[in-house]
Every structure is written in structure tokens, then in C-alpha cells.
Design a protein around this nucleic acid. Structure first.
Lengths: 347, 347
DNA sequence: CTGTTAGCGCGTTCAT
DNA sequence: ATGAACGCGCTAACAG
């Protein structure tokens, strides 16, 4: 079998009857070449269907720009929309967008970051909540330093900053503030016993939402009751299971429910419906993330809007603007409550 | 300012007091090296925080494998889930996953495919429906041929095959069949006047669903009424607007509605609700795609499940299994109706 | 086991 | 305006 090797610049040169250098000049464009030879070269390129080798080219610093997004997984809307923002800004600035998943495995994360360094990515964006222990902080510091040394840049996206001296960029959002607003909305409506179906304990994203929940309570002088907060998986299934259990137990007293995110809210709603409970007549419910589907809920779900795409866009923008002095920024994006029909005043 | 250039293999060799070749050997692993030198080299690597240059390495065929997914956009769940499948299978087979968007612009598409050739991607996956004109067919043929010549591979995903002699792979799904099943479901429930809020005219994905609609009608001996089919943008907004217009007009007679996809169904539902019409009491509704949010609809939406992630996974799998003989396959994945609560028998 | 040599495909000097 | 030669960082072939 004939393995038709792909043509190199040498083949083009031979066919056009010129030197490799000339071909290179025609291809890069920014150099005077006689119309005559240019035409000959272009013809040869066409006939051979030649494309330059990005790798060979990269050896001379003429590298195709690349930004890499690293997330635990891409299926959930939250990450999908961050990815969309990253991709959008990347292609706008003529960069390739590489997407990798770690499945929350630190080993895979390490592996992926190394891979991105090998690829000479301009920026590596780590997105999503984390358990912020010492091990994590040290790992991030290493990544950031390694990337910075290599002229690249680590971006922490949708997760907390690691301090002003952290050698990387952080793009976070008003997570606590959003939760505060959501719970205050319930409080304003007269609710005092507010259940919170939160995410996993110690996960920053979830913890900050609990913090906002508590501060809102405090703002109204409502004592915090730990029994009202449930930690667990924050997907639809997790919401359903925990709401189911609480209803079955039947001992908890509450009128408002704050779901850790919209997925949880969907599960909560399903469990409620099973028991013939109605929202907002029997219980008021608020979600978080303002997933596009929130408005299709029954009833349309009041939720906290997180600017996921903007987070992604900003991450790329900050990382790639070449003011190397500002490669240690910390940006905080706003959130706000989108009021729909799932909360009603308690009489 | 001191630009700390990243260390090369030469620096490592110097620091470890060995030759570059030796460093290369301990790095690649699969070669006998004395424990002693190995240790020295590893120490130097650590101290310098050295990582190989993937581009230089690629010049020797030792390339990090890459698959590229090219879609119009990544925000819609449909594409996000295909992307998830592609990413999953890519990382499983130790490949990088590159995601690019074209915004349905042929020029950008051409540009992106060329870029992928430059990057020496193992496979380029073009996903999503298209307007299948001669221009399109010719373009695909060119892409496929170019990619095949370069040892790579073009995959058409979630769109029709271009014939048995097409030099690429196709991974499509039973689009027409799914529509047939959906409409048959309505027919079985006694509905005869079935409105179809379809997608854009001439777009394969939408057209095939209309084809299924017609064949189901034919199967029941119900004459096709063109007035019942509306073409337009197939997002929530498009669904809302067109349903709104039809209701305002008030001249059309129907009891069942087949939405081109779940986004359209959401819009249809909203317009219906505005007028106090209820589903399924007043109208029966079926969607398409079985977006995760379909079950959160009011009522939970009966919809056609499209195995988006499986489409993505299969595309990568077929493209990367090295049986170069089978690089012209055509695979068709199944769809099926997920029955929920949005259809009821017509008395 | 290890060092030396030769290229991979390309851009970039230097000449011409 | 064009060509020859060198080197980017690395691996592979060949010696030792």
C-alpha cells in the first residue's frame, strides 16, 4: 500500500521550481514576491493541496494560539455555558479552544495541565468549584508558577481567588451575594423557616451559597437552624432524594426552600409534586444558576442568574491581553435574582 | 526585563551532565537507562520544571492525538451534548479535544478545517444539520479528500451521508423515524389535525422531521395539509412567535402539535399558556431531542430521544480505530419516543 | 547503557 | 526579488 505522505514545503518548492524560502514568503504574505512566482507557487500549493505544518511552524514561535479549558465535566449546563463563553472569545481572538475534562480527579488534572504546557497553550482555564484544602492550594500555585514561567497563564474561573500574591488570574462571581439575595427574597415574602438543599459539603461553590443563606437569615434576625440545611449531590437526583426523605420523615417544619442549583430544584419539585404539594401555594422555591430551562419549570422558577458565558469570555480576555503586568488580576462578576413564579408571600 | 525562556531538553542535559539523547530516553521511558542517570535527569527536570515541547516532538510523528469538533455553535443543548460525547471518547482514547465554531459561515468552516489540517488532527468531526446543496456537497468532498490524503479523516455527524463513495465517515441518527414515531403517537391517540412547528426550510435536520411527519400521516391515510406546517427558526423564540401568530389568526383547526424540537415546544407552550390553553387538555404536544429539561416542562413533555452523546462518542470511535479500510463507514443510530404527559387521547 | 550524528518541516538570517 | 544555509527542540539511527 502506498502511504501518500503529505506534501511538505519542499515538494511545493520543487513543483514550482523555486526555493523553499520563496514558498515560505508567499505563504506568510508579508514579503515582496514577484507576481509571477507568486502565481506559480500558489498553483503548486493548490495542486498539491498543501497546508503548512503547524508544529514545524510553532518551532519558530509562529504558533497557533491556543486556550485550554479544564473542567470536571461538560455535560451540565453550568459548564457547557462557561465553555461556550470561552470558545466564543477564543475564536474571536483567533485562538483554538481546547476542552479537557478531569472528572474531579487531581491526577487527571495534573496530567491535563502538563499536556497543555507541552502544547504551549497561551492560557489554561480551570473552571468550577473545588474543595479548597492545602493540597489544592499548593497544586494551583505550582500550576500557576509553571505556566507563568513558560509565558502562559493560569486562570481560576468560577472559583475563589487564592490571594493577591497568587501568580495567576481569577474570574469569580458573586456567589454569596446571589444566595443572599435569593434568601432575602424569601424572607421579604414572609418566610422564616427556609430549607436549603445545598451541594456537597466543603465544595466552595456550595459553601458560599450556604454562607449567603446564613447572612441573609442573620440580616433578618432569624436564627440559623442546622437541621434546615442538607448537603449532598447537587443534581436533579440529589434534590429529589433529599426532598423525598424530608417529606417522608415529615418532622421538619418549613415554608420556603432554597435549592443549591436549578438541577436540585427540579428534583425538589418532582418530589413535592409526588406528594401533591404545590409550588408556590404550599411551598416557595428558589433555585440557583438560572439555567435556560428554569423558565419552563412548573411554575417558572425564580433563580439566581450566574453569567456563565461572561465568566468564560472574561477568563480568555484577561488571560490573553498581553499586559504581562496584569496577569495576576482578580475579577468578580455580578449575579442577580431573576424573579418568576415560584415564590409567593406567606400570609 | 528578563524573559525567562522556557528550558529545552538541552538545558536539562547540561544540568544533568548527560547528552540530550539520554534525557529523551528517560522522558519517553521505554528504553533502558541506568537508575543512576535516570535519577539525575529526573532531578534536573524537576528543578527546571521542564516539559517537552509537543510541537518539536510532533515533527517526529510522536504527536499528541487530537480530534476536532466543528459545530455552528455550542450553546444549545443539542450540540453541547454531542460535544460531551466527543470529549468523553477523546479523553478515553487519550486524545485532545478541540472545539471550534463556525456560526454557520462556510468561510469560517473552510478556515477551521484548514486549521485542523495544519494541526494534524486525527479526525475532524462536522456536526449538525445543513442545507444540502451542490456547493455543500462539493465542499465536503474536498474536505474529506484532503483529510484522507493527510492520513486524517472527516466525520459527518448528526447529518446525512453523502453516499457510499464519500471518502469519509458518517454517523447519523434515525431522524425521520423518530418523527414518524412521534406523529404516529399523536395519531394513535386519535389526533388527525396535527400542526407542525418545524425548523428552517431545507435544513436537513428539520426536513427529515417533516418527512417523518408526512409518512406517519400517510400511514394513517390522513391527507397532508401544507397549511399545518410552519417553517422557521427552531428555538424557543421561534416557537413562541409562530404559535402566537397562529393563535391570533385563529383560523387554523388542529388538536395535536408536533414541535420541531424541545426549544420550539417550550415557546409553543408559553404562547398556549398565555391564551389559557392547556396541554394536554386542549392540545396535545410532542417535542424532539428529549432535552434534559423536557421532564421539567408543565406538563412533562413527550419527546423523541436523540442519542447526542452517543453520536459524539461513535464519531470519535469510528474515526480513530485504525482500520484504514473502514474509514468510509456509514452508521445510523436509533431514536425513540419518550412518553410523558403532554399527549392525551382525543375523545 | 550512553554519546554522536542526522534529520523532521519550517522561518530566518545572510548573500546574491 | 530570490536562494543557500542555519537552527528551532526533539527523536532515531548508529556507534561505542
Amino acid at each position: 500500500m502506498v502511504v501518500s505522505k503529505r506534501p511538505s514545503i519542499k515538494d511545493v518548492a520543487a513543483r514550482a521550481g523555486v526555493s523553499m524560502a520563496t514558498v515560505s514568503r508567499v505563504l506568510s504574505g508579508d514579503y515582496p514576491v514577484s507576481a509571477q512566482t507568486r502565481e506559480r507557487v500558489e498553483k503548486a500549493v493548490r495542486e498539491l493541496d498543501y497546508v503548512v505544518n503547524a508544529h514545524a511552524r510553532a518551532l519558530h514561535g509562529v504558533t497557533a494560539k491556543v486556550v485550554a479549558l479544564v473542567v470536571a465535566e461538560v455535560t451540565t449546563p453550568f459548564f457547557a455555558r462557561i465553555a461556550a463563553g470561552v470558545e466564543e472569545m477564543a475564536s474571536q481572538t483567533h485562538r483554538l479552544c481546547l476542552i479537557c475534562t478531569t472528572h474531579a480527579d487531581p491526577d487527571r488534572e495534573l496530567e491535563v495541565v502538563r499536556l497543555m504546557r507541552e502544547q504551549r497553550a497561551d492560557a489554561v482555564i480551570l473552571a468550577g468549584g473545588v474543595v479548597e484544602n492545602d493540597d489544592y492550594r499548593e497544586r494551583m500555585r505550582q500550576y500557576a508558577k509553571g505556566l507563568e514561567d513558560a509565558g502562559s497563564c493560569l486562570v481560576l474561573c468560577a472559583r475563589p481567588s487564592l490571594g493577591p500574591d497568587f501568580p495567576g488570574i481569577t474570574v469569580d462571581y458573586e456567589n454569596t451575594g446571589g444566595a443572599h439575595a435569593a434568601v432575602t427574597h424569601l424572607l421579604t415574602a414572609g418566610h422564616r423557616r427556609i430549607l436549603m438543599i445545598a451541594g456537597p459539603d466543603r465544595l466552595t461553590t456550595s459553601d458560599h451559597r450556604v454562607t449567603g443563606y446564613r447572612s441573609a437569615l442573620a440580616g433578618y434576625g432569624v436564627p440559623f437552624d442546622p437541621a434546615l440545611v442538607s448537603h449532598g449531590p447537587w443534581d436533579r437526583e440529589g434534590g429529589y432524594r433529599r426532598m423525598r426523605a424530608i417529606l417522608d420523615q415529615g418532622t421538619l417544619d418549613f415554608t420556603g426552600i432554597f435549592a443549591g442549583n436549578d438541577g436540585v430544584a427540579a428534583g425538589v419539585l418532582e418530589a413535592l409534586r409526588e406528594d401533591g404539594k404545590r409550588v408556590p401555594e404550599d411551598f416557595s422555591l428558589v433555585g440557583y444558576d438560572d439555567t435556560p430551562s428554569a423558565r419552563d419549570f412548573d411554575p417558572p422558577l425564580t433563580s439566581v442568574l450566574v453569567p456563565q458565558e461572561e465568566l468564560g469570555r472574561t477568563a480568555v480576555k484577561l488571560a490573553t491581553q498581553r499586559s504581562s503586568g496584569s496577569r495576576r488580576e482578580h475579577v468578580m462578576l455580578g449575579t442577580h435574582l431573576v424573579v418568576r413564579k415560584s415564590v409567593r408571600p406567606l400570609h
